[in-house]
Design a protein around this nucleic acid. Sequence first.
DNA 1: CGCGAGCTTGACGTTGTTCAACTAGAGTGG
DNA 2: CCACTCTAGTTGAACAACGTCAAGCTCGCG
Lengths: 229, 229
Amino acid sequence: MKKISLSNNCVACPYRWKYLNLLQDEDIKAIQGNCLNINFKKGETICKQGTNVTHALYLAKGMVKLYLEGKKSLILKVIKQGQYIDLQTLFGDFVYRYSVSAAEDSMVCMINADFFLKTAKGNPDFLFELTNTISTSTNYVYKKINDLGRKQLRGRIADALLYFSEEIYESETFDLNFTRKEIAELSAMSTENAVRLLTELKKEGIISVEGRHFKVLQIDLLRKISEIG
Amino acid sequence: MKKISLSNNCVACPYRWKYLNLLQDEDIKAIQGNCLNINFKKGETICKQGTNVTHALYLAKGMVKLYLEGKKSLILKVIKQGQYIDLQTLFGDFVYRYSVSAAEDSMVCMINADFFLKTAKGNPDFLFELTNTISTSTNYVYKKINDLGRKQLRGRIADALLYFSEEIYESETFDLNFTRKEIAELSAMSTENAVRLLTELKKEGIISVEGRHFKVLQIDLLRKISEIG
DNA sequence: CGCGAGCTTGACGTTGTTCAACTAGAGTGG
DNA sequence: CCACTCTAGTTGAACAACGTCAAGCTCGCG
């Protein structure tokens, strides 16, 4: 069951977006009046591919995954707290190109879409940072195309490990909250091959794996594997 | 040899961006003073992966391809006249993630990057449309990931044909100005397989092909092939 | 007429998926 | 506390998908 509540103090919120301060306090308070806080448990769906955007979604706490649905899923990326989830949809054609679900218990701020866009339009500096955010995220997607379109399995699993280590957990050791199946979906391969390649990398001493506990031992080699594909 | 000239009448330019009119004439004239027109012959490189953005690039006339370099190229997309080429780089981290070259003789307007950004920031409505443009283009890239990450060759070649027919040439018959190798690079497959699949689709009566002259005969079937992957 | 680039086809080897079987651990109900 | 079941993870073997190699073909151009 989701716990829903009205936002009560966006101005002083410790989880607020780092560029929210580009707005005047009165604008922030107005947003607050149009904002709901919703709690999602791990695994719950936050938004669904093919539906229309009605709110700007800001991930205040937790972690979510963006993925494409179909016979088999493809995980586009993982988003950590402190980021918007759906800006390019909000500023695009309002149709979600992907689904989003909680990778751990998460809290999402839902801000009325029209109101959010109006506020953005009235605050160029704020809008400018939103635009930068969208652009940076687009560039990530280009990298993803490069990875999927031109690398073999070994390169792709290396990409996934580097992604977790460098982007998501920001540490050479991490406790992954994703299954082998999800690693495979992130790398666009079968679960079996993801497993095989992980044990291979483990045997070669490039990583160590114990269940969900990972450690990158030779990051240079991992980068090289990623490069040569 | 490139023909370079100063822009001389952006206000009345028949090739100008459809949302340029959101700027005041004085702003447009200021842009004009910071804008060069450059002609590229087919095949010439317009910008190079890994380099820094110094200008906003607007494709006034012609057609270009965006592609990732490497041992083998991967064509991300084709851009037709009337669109900006590098907005997400300009608003991102200023490093080109892809190379661009002319698919036919083209004219590009190069507007000083700092000046362009400053102007955008000072004109929220204009900036808003730029943001929308970037967002829409991001959504296209998600589709591309879906195509490359989850479909087999047959689905991917169908995607390429639909892309040319529906997005680029906007006609069921078209004279392609790309080689078989480039079709393959757009679909992330070997040239040989691109050829094989095209003749296959031809034999099945789904398309007709004579050299570079294409005709989509059964678009429903093509869409179905694209869907099932 | 000869040359080279783009195109085409078949044979073959590699890469990656699918299927099937098995293990370990976590939760459940008697 | 012990069967029972369910899910995640693992491994091997068969099979399909795809790329590479080699050869030949066509057409435009010098």
